[in-house]
Amino acid sequence: MQRVNMIMAESPGLITICLLGYLLSAECTVFLDHENANKILNRPKRYNSGKLEEFVQGNLERECMEEKCSFEEAREVFENTERTTEFWKQYVDGDQCESNPCLNGGSCKDDINSYECWCPFGFEGKNCELDVTCNIKNGRCEQFCKNSADNKVVCSCTEGYRLAENQKSCEPAVPFPCGRVSVSQTSKLTRAETVFPDVDYVNSTEAETILDNITQSTQSFNDFTRVVGGEDAKPGQFPWQVVLNGKVDAFCGGSIVNEKWIVTAAHCVETGVKITVVAGEHNIEETEHTEQKRNVIRIIPHHNYNAAINKYNHDIALLELDEPLVLNSYVTPICIADKEYTNIFLKFGSGYVSGWGRVFHKGRSALVLQYLRVPLVDRATCLRSTKFTIYNNMFCAGFHEGGRDSCQGDSGGPHVTEVEGTSFLTGIISWGEECAMKGKYGIYTKVSRYVNWIKEKTKLT
Protein backbone atom coordinates (compact mmCIF):
# COMPACT_ATOMS: atom_id res chain seq x y z
CA MET A 1 0.00 0.00 0.00
CA GLN A 2 2.91 2.29 0.80
CA ARG A 3 4.31 1.55 -2.65
CA VAL A 4 1.05 2.46 -4.39
CA ASN A 5 0.85 5.71 -2.55
CA MET A 6 4.36 6.56 -3.61
CA ILE A 7 3.52 5.85 -7.28
CA MET A 8 0.38 8.09 -7.17
CA ALA A 9 2.32 10.85 -5.56
CA GLU A 10 5.13 10.63 -8.04
CA SER A 11 2.97 10.08 -11.23
CA PRO A 12 -0.30 12.12 -11.10
CA GLY A 13 -0.50 12.26 -14.90
CA LEU A 14 -0.66 8.53 -15.06
CA ILE A 15 -3.66 8.48 -12.78
CA THR A 16 -5.51 11.04 -14.94
CA ILE A 17 -4.95 9.01 -18.10
CA CYS A 18 -6.28 5.89 -16.44
CA LEU A 19 -9.45 7.58 -15.24
CA LEU A 20 -10.14 9.11 -18.67
CA GLY A 21 -9.78 5.74 -20.34
CA TYR A 22 -12.25 4.24 -17.92
CA LEU A 23 -14.87 6.92 -18.61
CA LEU A 24 -14.57 6.66 -22.39
CA SER A 25 -15.04 2.92 -22.22
CA ALA A 26 -18.15 3.21 -20.07
CA GLU A 27 -21.72 3.27 -21.73
CA CYS A 28 -23.42 6.70 -21.61
CA THR A 29 -26.95 6.55 -20.17
CA VAL A 30 -27.53 10.31 -19.44
CA PHE A 31 -27.91 11.70 -23.03
CA LEU A 32 -30.30 10.49 -25.76
CA ASP A 33 -29.08 9.73 -29.18
CA HIS A 34 -29.59 12.25 -32.04
CA GLU A 35 -32.73 10.61 -33.50
CA ASN A 36 -34.62 10.35 -30.19
CA ALA A 37 -33.63 13.83 -29.14
CA ASN A 38 -35.29 15.28 -32.27
CA LYS A 39 -38.56 13.50 -31.43
CA ILE A 40 -38.78 15.40 -28.15
CA LEU A 41 -37.78 18.80 -29.58
CA ASN A 42 -39.90 18.55 -32.71
CA ARG A 43 -39.88 22.30 -33.69
CA PRO A 44 -40.19 23.51 -37.31
CA LYS A 45 -37.15 25.10 -38.75
CA ARG A 46 -37.35 28.89 -39.01
CA TYR A 47 -37.00 30.73 -42.31
CA ASN A 48 -33.34 31.55 -41.85
CA SER A 49 -32.43 28.72 -39.55
CA GLY A 50 -28.72 28.25 -39.33
CA LYS A 51 -27.96 31.78 -40.52
CA LEU A 52 -27.26 35.00 -38.70
CA GLU A 53 -30.46 37.16 -38.68
CA GLU A 54 -28.46 40.35 -39.10
CA PHE A 55 -27.54 39.26 -42.63
CA VAL A 56 -31.01 38.25 -43.99
CA GLN A 57 -34.16 40.15 -44.95
CA GLY A 58 -36.69 40.55 -42.12
CA ASN A 59 -39.79 38.36 -41.89
CA LEU A 60 -43.09 39.93 -40.69
CA GLU A 61 -44.25 36.81 -38.86
CA ARG A 62 -40.94 36.31 -37.09
CA GLU A 63 -40.32 39.95 -36.30
CA CYS A 64 -43.78 41.21 -35.26
CA MET A 65 -46.29 38.36 -34.94
CA GLU A 66 -44.43 35.79 -32.82
CA GLU A 67 -43.43 38.58 -30.48
CA LYS A 68 -43.90 42.34 -30.24
CA CYS A 69 -41.53 44.22 -32.47
CA SER A 70 -40.16 47.73 -32.59
CA PHE A 71 -40.54 50.20 -35.43
CA GLU A 72 -36.94 49.48 -36.47
CA GLU A 73 -37.62 45.75 -36.65
CA ALA A 74 -40.71 46.36 -38.77
CA ARG A 75 -38.61 48.65 -40.97
CA GLU A 76 -36.29 45.71 -41.66
CA VAL A 77 -39.26 43.80 -43.13
CA PHE A 78 -40.63 46.53 -45.42
CA GLU A 79 -37.32 48.25 -46.18
CA ASN A 80 -39.41 51.38 -46.82
CA THR A 81 -40.30 54.05 -44.27
CA GLU A 82 -43.66 54.98 -45.83
CA ARG A 83 -44.92 51.37 -45.96
CA THR A 84 -43.61 50.75 -42.47
CA THR A 85 -45.50 53.77 -41.16
CA GLU A 86 -48.77 52.56 -42.70
CA PHE A 87 -48.28 49.13 -41.09
CA TRP A 88 -47.26 50.65 -37.76
CA LYS A 89 -50.46 52.75 -37.46
CA GLN A 90 -52.63 49.63 -37.48
CA TYR A 91 -50.13 47.43 -35.59
CA VAL A 92 -49.97 49.71 -32.56
CA ASP A 93 -53.70 50.35 -31.88
CA GLY A 94 -55.81 48.66 -34.57
CA ASP A 95 -57.53 50.09 -37.65
CA GLN A 96 -59.32 53.36 -36.77
CA CYS A 97 -60.99 53.31 -40.22
CA GLU A 98 -62.77 50.01 -39.60
CA SER A 99 -66.02 51.82 -38.66
CA ASN A 100 -65.99 53.86 -41.91
CA PRO A 101 -66.18 57.26 -40.17
CA CYS A 102 -65.77 59.37 -43.33
CA LEU A 103 -69.03 60.64 -44.84
CA ASN A 104 -70.06 61.74 -48.34
CA GLY A 105 -67.64 59.44 -50.13
CA GLY A 106 -64.58 60.46 -48.10
CA SER A 107 -61.53 58.15 -47.99
CA CYS A 108 -60.22 57.14 -44.56
CA LYS A 109 -56.51 56.95 -43.68
CA ASP A 110 -55.61 55.24 -40.40
CA ASP A 111 -53.33 56.91 -37.85
CA ILE A 112 -52.14 56.15 -34.33
CA ASN A 113 -55.12 56.66 -31.98
CA SER A 114 -56.75 58.67 -34.76
CA TYR A 115 -57.67 58.78 -38.45
CA GLU A 116 -57.77 61.28 -41.29
CA CYS A 117 -60.57 61.71 -43.85
CA TRP A 118 -59.64 62.72 -47.38
CA CYS A 119 -62.78 64.53 -48.52
CA PRO A 120 -64.11 64.77 -52.09
CA PHE A 121 -64.62 68.16 -53.68
CA GLY A 122 -67.36 70.10 -51.95
CA PHE A 123 -66.93 68.67 -48.45
CA GLU A 124 -64.67 69.24 -45.48
CA GLY A 125 -64.55 68.68 -41.72
CA LYS A 126 -63.25 65.86 -39.51
CA ASN A 127 -65.61 63.37 -41.19
CA CYS A 128 -66.30 65.28 -44.46
CA GLU A 129 -69.64 66.29 -42.96
CA LEU A 130 -69.49 69.97 -43.96
CA ASP A 131 -70.71 71.13 -47.37
CA VAL A 132 -68.51 73.83 -48.86
CA THR A 133 -70.17 74.25 -52.24
CA CYS A 134 -73.70 75.06 -53.34
CA ASN A 135 -73.41 72.58 -56.21
CA ILE A 136 -74.07 69.61 -53.92
CA LYS A 137 -77.53 69.41 -52.35
CA ASN A 138 -77.75 73.20 -52.34
CA GLY A 139 -75.01 73.26 -49.69
CA ARG A 140 -77.59 71.74 -47.30
CA CYS A 141 -79.27 75.15 -47.25
CA GLU A 142 -83.04 75.00 -46.86
CA GLN A 143 -83.70 77.83 -49.30
CA PHE A 144 -80.88 79.80 -50.93
CA CYS A 145 -77.16 79.10 -51.14
CA LYS A 146 -74.22 81.26 -52.16
CA ASN A 147 -70.51 80.50 -52.28
CA SER A 148 -68.41 83.10 -50.48
CA ALA A 149 -65.10 84.47 -51.74
CA ASP A 150 -63.23 81.64 -49.97
CA ASN A 151 -65.62 79.08 -51.51
CA LYS A 152 -67.59 78.49 -48.32
CA VAL A 153 -71.35 77.90 -48.26
CA VAL A 154 -73.44 80.85 -47.09
CA CYS A 155 -77.15 80.11 -46.65
CA SER A 156 -79.91 82.71 -46.78
CA CYS A 157 -83.69 82.90 -46.71
CA THR A 158 -86.44 84.68 -48.58
CA GLU A 159 -88.12 87.77 -47.15
CA GLY A 160 -90.03 87.05 -43.95
CA TYR A 161 -87.63 84.33 -42.83
CA ARG A 162 -84.32 84.25 -40.96
CA LEU A 163 -81.58 81.66 -40.62
CA ALA A 164 -81.98 79.26 -37.73
CA GLU A 165 -79.20 78.57 -35.25
CA ASN A 166 -77.74 75.85 -37.47
CA GLN A 167 -77.21 78.46 -40.23
CA LYS A 168 -78.90 76.10 -42.72
CA SER A 169 -82.62 76.08 -41.96
CA CYS A 170 -85.02 78.99 -42.32
CA GLU A 171 -87.53 79.96 -39.65
CA PRO A 172 -90.36 82.51 -39.79
CA ALA A 173 -89.42 86.04 -38.79
CA VAL A 174 -92.97 87.44 -39.17
CA PRO A 175 -96.37 86.12 -38.04
CA PHE A 176 -97.49 85.05 -41.53
CA PRO A 177 -94.47 84.46 -43.76
CA CYS A 178 -94.89 83.82 -47.46
CA GLY A 179 -95.54 80.37 -48.83
CA ARG A 180 -96.45 78.75 -45.51
CA VAL A 181 -99.67 76.93 -44.67
CA SER A 182 -100.52 77.82 -41.07
CA VAL A 183 -104.10 76.58 -40.61
CA SER A 184 -103.76 73.69 -38.18
CA GLN A 185 -106.23 71.29 -39.80
CA THR A 186 -104.59 71.70 -43.21
CA SER A 187 -100.98 71.48 -42.11
CA LYS A 188 -101.27 67.68 -42.25
CA LEU A 189 -102.21 67.99 -45.91
CA THR A 190 -99.05 69.84 -46.85
CA ARG A 191 -97.73 68.38 -50.06
CA ALA A 192 -94.63 66.23 -50.18
CA GLU A 193 -91.51 68.27 -49.52
CA THR A 194 -89.05 68.71 -52.33
CA VAL A 195 -85.42 67.99 -51.50
CA PHE A 196 -82.59 69.64 -53.42
CA PRO A 197 -80.79 67.37 -55.87
CA ASP A 198 -77.19 67.85 -56.94
CA VAL A 199 -77.35 70.86 -59.26
CA ASP A 200 -74.90 72.50 -61.62
CA TYR A 201 -75.51 76.05 -60.41
CA VAL A 202 -73.15 77.55 -62.92
CA ASN A 203 -75.38 76.45 -65.79
CA SER A 204 -78.71 76.44 -63.97
CA THR A 205 -80.19 79.40 -65.80
CA GLU A 206 -81.12 78.27 -69.26
CA ALA A 207 -79.49 80.06 -72.15
CA GLU A 208 -82.77 81.08 -73.69
CA THR A 209 -83.53 84.05 -75.88
CA ILE A 210 -86.82 85.78 -75.25
CA LEU A 211 -88.43 86.35 -78.60
CA ASP A 212 -89.38 89.95 -77.89
CA ASN A 213 -89.16 91.20 -81.45
CA ILE A 214 -91.18 88.50 -83.19
CA THR A 215 -94.23 89.84 -84.95
CA GLN A 216 -96.99 87.37 -85.48
CA SER A 217 -100.61 87.57 -86.50
CA THR A 218 -103.15 86.94 -83.80
CA GLN A 219 -103.79 83.22 -83.46
CA SER A 220 -107.25 81.82 -82.89
CA PHE A 221 -107.11 79.66 -79.77
CA ASN A 222 -109.95 77.52 -78.49
CA ASP A 223 -110.74 77.91 -74.80
CA PHE A 224 -107.32 79.29 -74.04
CA THR A 225 -108.35 81.10 -70.87
CA ARG A 226 -107.59 77.91 -69.09
CA VAL A 227 -108.68 72.31 -62.46
CA VAL A 228 -109.84 69.19 -64.22
CA GLY A 229 -109.33 65.98 -62.26
CA GLY A 230 -108.20 67.87 -59.16
CA GLU A 231 -109.17 67.64 -55.51
CA ASP A 232 -111.07 69.94 -53.18
CA ALA A 233 -108.67 72.11 -51.24
CA LYS A 234 -109.15 72.61 -47.51
CA PRO A 235 -109.73 76.14 -46.18
CA GLY A 236 -106.35 77.86 -45.89
CA GLN A 237 -104.47 75.20 -47.85
CA PHE A 238 -103.55 77.71 -50.60
CA PRO A 239 -103.75 81.03 -48.74
CA TRP A 240 -102.00 82.96 -51.55
CA GLN A 241 -104.78 82.15 -54.04
CA VAL A 242 -107.25 84.91 -54.95
CA VAL A 243 -110.26 85.00 -57.26
CA LEU A 244 -110.99 87.84 -59.70
CA ASN A 245 -114.57 89.04 -60.19
CA GLY A 246 -115.53 91.40 -63.01
CA LYS A 247 -118.23 91.19 -65.64
CA VAL A 248 -118.63 87.64 -64.36
CA ASP A 249 -117.54 86.13 -61.08
CA ALA A 250 -114.47 83.90 -60.84
CA PHE A 251 -113.37 84.68 -64.39
CA CYS A 252 -109.68 84.34 -63.45
CA GLY A 253 -107.37 83.69 -60.54
CA GLY A 254 -104.28 85.33 -59.13
CA SER A 255 -101.65 85.19 -56.37
CA ILE A 256 -100.86 87.52 -53.48
CA VAL A 257 -97.42 89.14 -53.85
CA ASN A 258 -97.83 91.28 -50.73
CA GLU A 259 -100.56 93.22 -48.93
CA LYS A 260 -101.05 95.63 -51.84
CA TRP A 261 -100.28 93.63 -54.98
CA ILE A 262 -101.63 90.66 -56.94
CA VAL A 263 -99.96 88.88 -59.87
CA THR A 264 -102.13 87.34 -62.59
CA ALA A 265 -102.22 86.68 -66.35
CA ALA A 266 -102.27 89.74 -68.61
CA HIS A 267 -104.95 88.25 -70.86
CA CYS A 268 -107.33 88.19 -67.87
CA VAL A 269 -107.59 91.96 -67.51
CA GLU A 270 -109.12 94.62 -69.73
CA THR A 271 -108.64 98.34 -69.49
CA GLY A 272 -111.75 100.05 -68.15
CA VAL A 273 -113.31 96.92 -66.65
CA LYS A 274 -113.79 97.06 -62.89
CA ILE A 275 -112.14 94.15 -61.10
CA THR A 276 -112.68 93.01 -57.53
CA VAL A 277 -110.15 90.75 -55.83
CA VAL A 278 -111.33 88.30 -53.17
CA ALA A 279 -108.64 86.80 -50.91
CA GLY A 280 -109.26 84.10 -48.32
CA GLU A 281 -111.92 82.53 -50.55
CA HIS A 282 -112.73 78.82 -50.43
CA ASN A 283 -116.33 78.17 -51.52
CA ILE A 284 -117.43 80.92 -53.89
CA GLU A 285 -121.10 80.36 -53.09
CA GLU A 286 -120.76 80.56 -49.32
CA THR A 287 -119.69 83.25 -46.89
CA GLU A 288 -117.08 81.68 -44.63
CA HIS A 289 -115.93 84.90 -42.89
CA THR A 290 -112.37 84.42 -44.09
CA GLU A 291 -112.86 86.47 -47.27
CA GLN A 292 -111.35 89.91 -47.87
CA LYS A 293 -112.55 91.95 -50.86
CA ARG A 294 -110.51 94.72 -52.46
CA ASN A 295 -110.93 96.86 -55.55
CA VAL A 296 -108.21 97.08 -58.20
CA ILE A 297 -107.03 100.66 -58.68
CA ARG A 298 -104.19 100.03 -61.14
CA ILE A 299 -103.34 97.39 -63.72
CA ILE A 300 -99.74 96.97 -64.93
CA PRO A 301 -99.33 94.47 -67.78
CA HIS A 302 -95.75 93.55 -68.61
CA HIS A 303 -94.24 96.17 -70.91
CA ASN A 304 -93.65 93.54 -73.64
CA TYR A 305 -97.23 92.29 -73.59
CA ASN A 306 -99.21 93.11 -76.73
CA ALA A 307 -102.53 91.30 -77.11
CA ALA A 308 -102.87 92.56 -80.70
CA ILE A 309 -99.79 90.55 -81.67
CA ASN A 310 -100.11 87.56 -79.35
CA LYS A 311 -102.55 87.24 -76.48
CA TYR A 312 -100.37 84.85 -74.49
CA ASN A 313 -96.79 86.03 -75.00
CA HIS A 314 -95.49 87.74 -71.83
CA ASP A 315 -98.80 86.82 -70.24
CA ILE A 316 -98.33 88.44 -66.85
CA ALA A 317 -99.80 91.51 -65.11
CA LEU A 318 -99.82 93.15 -61.69
CA LEU A 319 -102.90 94.49 -59.89
CA GLU A 320 -102.65 97.20 -57.24
CA LEU A 321 -105.31 97.10 -54.51
CA ASP A 322 -107.11 100.08 -53.01
CA GLU A 323 -106.50 98.90 -49.43
CA PRO A 324 -103.86 96.55 -48.03
CA LEU A 325 -104.90 93.01 -47.25
CA VAL A 326 -104.75 91.90 -43.62
CA LEU A 327 -102.47 88.89 -43.53
CA ASN A 328 -103.60 85.84 -41.59
CA SER A 329 -103.76 82.05 -41.94
CA TYR A 330 -106.20 82.36 -44.86
CA VAL A 331 -104.55 85.33 -46.58
CA THR A 332 -100.80 84.84 -47.04
CA PRO A 333 -98.41 85.92 -49.85
CA ILE A 334 -96.67 83.44 -52.12
CA CYS A 335 -92.87 83.46 -52.00
CA ILE A 336 -90.98 84.77 -55.03
CA ALA A 337 -87.31 83.84 -55.30
CA ASP A 338 -84.71 85.43 -57.57
CA LYS A 339 -84.42 84.46 -61.23
CA GLU A 340 -81.85 81.72 -60.69
CA TYR A 341 -83.66 79.94 -57.89
CA THR A 342 -87.11 80.29 -59.47
CA ASN A 343 -85.70 78.47 -62.48
CA ILE A 344 -84.07 75.83 -60.26
CA PHE A 345 -87.30 75.26 -58.35
CA LEU A 346 -89.22 74.81 -61.61
CA LYS A 347 -86.75 72.10 -62.64
CA PHE A 348 -87.59 70.10 -59.54
CA GLY A 349 -90.14 68.54 -61.86
CA SER A 350 -93.61 69.06 -60.43
CA GLY A 351 -95.74 71.86 -59.09
CA TYR A 352 -99.23 72.58 -57.82
CA VAL A 353 -101.92 74.50 -59.67
CA SER A 354 -105.15 75.72 -58.11
CA GLY A 355 -108.30 77.57 -59.08
CA TRP A 356 -112.08 77.65 -59.43
CA GLY A 357 -112.06 76.91 -63.16
CA ARG A 358 -114.19 74.41 -65.00
CA VAL A 359 -114.02 70.88 -63.64
CA PHE A 360 -114.22 69.47 -67.19
CA HIS A 361 -114.00 70.89 -70.72
CA LYS A 362 -116.95 73.23 -71.36
CA GLY A 363 -118.41 72.06 -68.06
CA ARG A 364 -119.46 73.88 -64.91
CA SER A 365 -117.06 75.90 -62.79
CA ALA A 366 -115.95 74.58 -59.42
CA LEU A 367 -117.55 75.98 -56.29
CA VAL A 368 -114.75 74.86 -53.97
CA LEU A 369 -111.12 75.68 -54.72
CA GLN A 370 -109.50 72.83 -56.65
CA TYR A 371 -105.84 71.84 -56.72
CA LEU A 372 -103.74 69.43 -58.74
CA ARG A 373 -100.13 68.33 -58.84
CA VAL A 374 -98.77 68.49 -62.38
CA PRO A 375 -95.41 67.25 -63.71
CA LEU A 376 -93.13 69.47 -65.77
CA VAL A 377 -92.98 68.44 -69.44
CA ASP A 378 -89.67 68.61 -71.29
CA ARG A 379 -89.49 71.29 -73.94
CA ALA A 380 -89.10 68.94 -76.90
CA THR A 381 -92.27 67.05 -75.97
CA CYS A 382 -94.04 70.33 -75.35
CA LEU A 383 -93.17 71.68 -78.81
CA ARG A 384 -94.30 68.47 -80.53
CA SER A 385 -97.66 68.54 -78.77
CA THR A 386 -99.02 71.66 -80.49
CA LYS A 387 -98.97 73.58 -83.75
CA PHE A 388 -98.91 76.86 -81.84
CA THR A 389 -95.77 78.75 -80.82
CA ILE A 390 -94.30 77.94 -77.42
CA TYR A 391 -92.03 80.85 -76.53
CA ASN A 392 -89.04 80.54 -74.22
CA ASN A 393 -90.95 82.44 -71.55
CA MET A 394 -93.51 79.61 -71.41
CA PHE A 395 -93.39 76.02 -70.17
CA CYS A 396 -95.64 72.96 -70.37
CA ALA A 397 -96.96 70.89 -67.49
CA GLY A 398 -99.53 68.13 -67.27
CA PHE A 399 -100.24 64.51 -68.17
CA HIS A 400 -99.89 62.95 -71.60
CA GLU A 401 -102.84 60.62 -70.97
CA GLY A 402 -105.10 63.59 -70.27
CA GLY A 403 -107.86 63.65 -67.68
CA ARG A 404 -106.17 66.17 -65.39
CA ASP A 405 -105.35 69.77 -66.20
CA SER A 406 -106.04 73.42 -65.49
CA CYS A 407 -109.05 74.77 -67.40
CA GLN A 408 -111.18 77.82 -68.16
CA GLY A 409 -111.41 80.13 -65.18
CA ASP A 410 -108.06 79.01 -63.74
CA SER A 411 -106.06 81.49 -65.85
CA GLY A 412 -103.88 83.84 -63.86
CA GLY A 413 -103.71 81.41 -60.97
CA PRO A 414 -100.48 80.08 -59.49
CA HIS A 415 -98.17 77.25 -60.41
CA VAL A 416 -96.14 76.77 -57.23
CA THR A 417 -93.25 74.54 -56.21
CA GLU A 418 -92.94 73.50 -52.60
CA VAL A 419 -89.39 73.66 -51.24
CA GLU A 420 -88.86 72.12 -47.81
CA GLY A 421 -92.35 73.14 -46.71
CA THR A 422 -92.34 76.63 -48.26
CA SER A 423 -94.08 77.31 -51.60
CA PHE A 424 -92.56 79.51 -54.31
CA LEU A 425 -94.27 80.91 -57.40
CA THR A 426 -92.83 79.24 -60.51
CA GLY A 427 -95.55 79.77 -63.11
CA ILE A 428 -98.85 81.44 -64.00
CA ILE A 429 -101.68 79.48 -65.62
CA SER A 430 -101.95 80.88 -69.15
CA TRP A 431 -103.48 78.75 -71.91
CA GLY A 432 -103.97 75.33 -73.49
CA GLU A 433 -105.88 73.44 -76.16
CA GLU A 434 -109.19 72.38 -74.64
CA CYS A 435 -108.76 70.94 -71.13
CA ALA A 436 -107.25 67.65 -70.01
CA MET A 437 -107.08 66.45 -73.61
CA LYS A 438 -104.84 63.44 -74.32
CA GLY A 439 -101.48 64.48 -75.75
CA LYS A 440 -102.04 68.14 -74.83
CA TYR A 441 -100.60 70.08 -71.93
CA GLY A 442 -101.28 73.21 -69.94
CA ILE A 443 -99.09 76.16 -70.93
CA TYR A 444 -97.73 78.44 -68.20
CA THR A 445 -95.91 81.75 -68.05
CA LYS A 446 -92.38 81.14 -66.77
CA VAL A 447 -92.10 83.38 -63.71
CA SER A 448 -88.29 83.19 -63.58
CA ARG A 449 -88.25 85.58 -66.57
CA TYR A 450 -90.18 88.24 -64.68
CA VAL A 451 -89.14 88.14 -61.02
CA ASN A 452 -87.03 91.30 -61.22
CA TRP A 453 -89.91 93.16 -62.85
CA ILE A 454 -92.37 91.88 -60.23
CA LYS A 455 -90.18 92.91 -57.31
CA GLU A 456 -89.42 96.32 -58.79
CA LYS A 457 -93.09 97.17 -59.38
CA THR A 458 -94.51 95.80 -56.13
CA LYS A 459 -92.22 97.44 -53.59
CA LEU A 460 -94.13 98.60 -50.53
CA THR A 461 -93.47 102.28 -49.74
Rank of each mutant, 00 (worst) to 15 (best):
R3N: 08
V4M: 14
N5M: 13
N5G: 13
N5S: 14
M8T: 13
A9R: 15
E10R: 04
P12K: 14
L14G: 03
L14C: 07
I15E: 02
I15P: 04
I15Q: 04
C18W: 05
L19G: 01
L20R: 01
L20G: 01
G21A: 13
G21P: 04
Y22E: 02
S25C: 15
T29Q: 10
V30N: 13
L32I: 13
D33E: 07
D33T: 09
E35M: 11
A37I: 06
N38F: 06
K39F: 07
L41E: 08
N42R: 05
R43V: 15
R43E: 11
Y47G: 15
Y47S: 14
E53I: 05
E54T: 07
F55D: 09
N59E: 08
L60A: 14
E61D: 06
E61N: 10
E61Y: 06
R62Y: 06
K68V: 13
F71K: 08
T85P: 14
E86V: 15
Q90E: 06
V92F: 08
G94F: 04
D95N: 15
D95T: 15
Q96C: 06
Q96E: 15
N100W: 08
P101D: 03
C102K: 01
C102M: 00
G106K: 02
K109R: 12
K109I: 09
K109W: 05
K109Q: 08
D110Q: 15
D111N: 15
D111G: 14
I112R: 15
N113F: 04
N113G: 07
N113Q: 13
S114T: 15
P120C: 04
P120T: 07
F121R: 13
E124W: 09
K126W: 08
K126H: 10
C128E: 03
E129T: 03
L130Y: 10
D131F: 12
D131P: 11
I136K: 14
K137W: 05
K137I: 05
R140P: 15
C141Q: 00
F144S: 00
F144A: 00
D150F: 08
K152V: 14
C155D: 01
C155Q: 00
C155R: 00
S156M: 10
C157S: 00
T158Q: 11
T158D: 03
L163G: 01
L163K: 04
N166I: 01
K168L: 10
S169H: 06
C170H: 01
C170A: 00
P177T: 03
P177K: 01
R180Q: 06
V181N: 09
S182V: 10
S184M: 06
S184W: 08
S184T: 09
S184N: 15
Q185C: 06
Q185A: 07
L189V: 10
R191K: 12
R191V: 11
E193P: 11
E193Y: 14
T194P: 08
F196L: 12
F196S: 12
V199T: 12
V202Q: 09
S204D: 11
T209M: 12
L211C: 08
I214D: 08
I214C: 09
T215H: 05
T215Q: 06
Q216E: 10
Q216Y: 10
T218M: 07
Q219W: 09
S220A: 11
F221P: 13
N222I: 08
D223T: 13
F224N: 12
R226M: 10
R226V: 11
V228F: 08
G229L: 13
G229C: 10
G230V: 13
E231T: 08
D232W: 13
P239H: 01
V243R: 09
V243W: 11
L244P: 01
K247R: 14
F251V: 08
F251G: 05
G254C: 00
G254F: 01
V257H: 00
V257D: 00
E259I: 04
H267F: 01
C268K: 01
C268V: 01
T271H: 03
T271K: 03
T271N: 06
G272A: 03
G272H: 03
V273Q: 03
K274Q: 04
K274E: 02
K274H: 03
I275K: 00
T276F: 04
V277G: 00
A279N: 02
A279V: 03
E281D: 13
H282K: 06
E286T: 07
T287C: 07
E288Y: 04
H289S: 11
H289L: 06
T290F: 07
K293W: 11
N295Y: 03
R298L: 02
I299Q: 09
I300W: 04
H302V: 01
H303T: 11
N304C: 10
A307P: 09
A307L: 07
I309V: 13
I309H: 10
Y312F: 12
I316Q: 00
L318T: 01
L318N: 00
L321D: 00
L321Y: 00
L321P: 01
E323D: 10
P324D: 05
V326Y: 13
N328V: 01
S329H: 12
S329I: 04
Y330C: 03
I334V: 13
D338P: 12
K339C: 09
Y341N: 15
Y341S: 14
T342S: 14
T342D: 03
N343S: 14
K347R: 14
F348W: 09
G349Y: 12
S350F: 11
H361N: 14
H361F: 07
L367N: 12
V368R: 12
L369R: 13
Q370F: 02
Q370L: 03
Q370N: 07
Q370S: 13
Y371D: 03
Y371N: 10
L372F: 13
L372R: 14
V374S: 04
P375A: 14
L376I: 13
V377K: 04
V377E: 02
V377Q: 11
V377R: 05
C382D: 01
C382G: 02
C382E: 02
C382A: 02
L383E: 10
T386W: 07
K387G: 08
T389P: 12
I390Q: 10
F395D: 00
F395W: 01
C396I: 02
A397S: 05
G398E: 06
E401H: 14
E401P: 11
G402R: 14
C407R: 05
Q408S: 15
G409C: 10
D410P: 13
G412H: 05
G412R: 04
G413Q: 08
P414I: 12
V416N: 03
V416R: 02
V416A: 10
V416M: 14
E418L: 11
E420I: 09
S423Y: 13
T426C: 00
G427A: 02
G427M: 00
I429T: 13
W431C: 09
C435I: 03
A436V: 04
K440N: 15
G442A: 14
G442D: 03
G442E: 04
I443D: 01
I443P: 02
Y444C: 03
Y444D: 01
T445A: 05
T445K: 00
S448F: 02
N452G: 15
K455W: 05
K457I: 14
T458N: 00
K459G: 14
T461S: 15
